[in-house]
């Protein structure tokens, strides 16, 4: 695949996304608004119940919510896009792309992660304004941490996308996993090394340190960074491989384009 073809593919995916955001701007706006209102409900509801005590944990809540919004968006974009394409009847067209399904999925995923982070940052700014809090937002630290952390969720998205190809209507499982993501973000990994193998948890912990304590990327121990990268890449690789196996199984059963 040439650089030109990769560029064309990226532009195709990105242009479609931007067109749909603009054409259905009310839907786009309400997507943000919905996420923001959910946060506001937690914040103001928490204040009403716990009073000033919530301020002690507010930084953690904001960082956790920021990561959750990015993760859920990346996860849905990956797992949901395959389901939707199958539903629309366009999946087989994408499969027949000369770039290959793998490259196309990789490009879509990259675009989705970028847009998810961009959306997450906007939401983060809104949360900080609402709570009058300040966090350390060093792009050189935050962006790589979020990207690598999100890779594990994208891997999970691929697994569910593959199962969706075979078993079709499994949206309810997707919904359940949303709660799982909250639990994974909230899981404390300090002192329990094995928990670092879970998706999101290690990244969440490091992001908390980076944003609340101002730890820079290069100040993290190399081992911790290594675990984070290995975690992200492993989940992504396993997820992608699983997707390919399930895709092949769907082709064998002749159900790839079915829904």
């Amino acid at each position: 695949m040439t650089a030109t073809e990769l560029s064309l593919l990226t532009r195709a995916v990105l242009e479609k996304k931007v067109i749909l955001w603009r054409r259905y701007w009310i839907n786009t706006a309400f997507g943000f608004l919905g996420a923001y209102l959910f946060f506001a409900m937690i914040f103001f509801g928490g204040q009403a119940v716990a009073g000033a005590a919530i301020t002690d944990t507010l930084d953690g809540i904001i960082v956790g919510f920021f990561l959750f919004s990015v993760a859920i968006s990346a996860y849905h974009s990956t797992s949901g896009q395959v389901t939707r394409e199958a539903q629309w009847g366009t999946l087989e067209q994408l499969y027949m792309s000369p770039s290959g399904m793998g490259t196309l999925m990789a490009v879509k995923t990259a675009v989705n992660i970028c847009t998810s982070i961009a959306g997450g940052l906007v939401l983060l700014a809104m949360m900080l304004v609402t709570t009058d809090q300040t966090l350390s937002i060093d792009a050189v630290t935050v962006v790589p941490l979020v990207v690598v952390t999100t890779l594990s969720v994208v891997g999970l998205g691929f697994v569910f996308a593959g199962f969706a190809l075979l078993y079709k209507r499994i949206e309810n499982v997707f919904q359940l996993l949303q709660f799982g993501l909250i639990a994974l973000i909230a899981t404390p990994v300090d002192g329990r090394e094995w928990l670092k193998a879970l998706p999101l948890s290690q990244g969440s912990s490091m992001l908390q340190e980076a944003m609340t304590e101002g730890v820079r990327l290069w100040e993290f121990p190399a081992v911790e960074l290594g675990i984070l990268v290995a975690n992200g890449l492993c989940y992504l690789a396993v997820g992608y491989l699983t997707f390919h196996l399930l895709l092949r199984r769907a082709r064998k059963l002749g159900v790839m384009g079915h829904y």
Binding site: T4, L8, L9, A12, I19, Q93, L94
Partner: peptide, 11 residues
């Protein structure tokens, strides 16, 4: 827009 998308998809 569809024409553009599918043309790009095909390189």
């Amino acid at each position: 827009e569809n024409l553009r998308f599918f043309a790009r998809l095909g390189g």
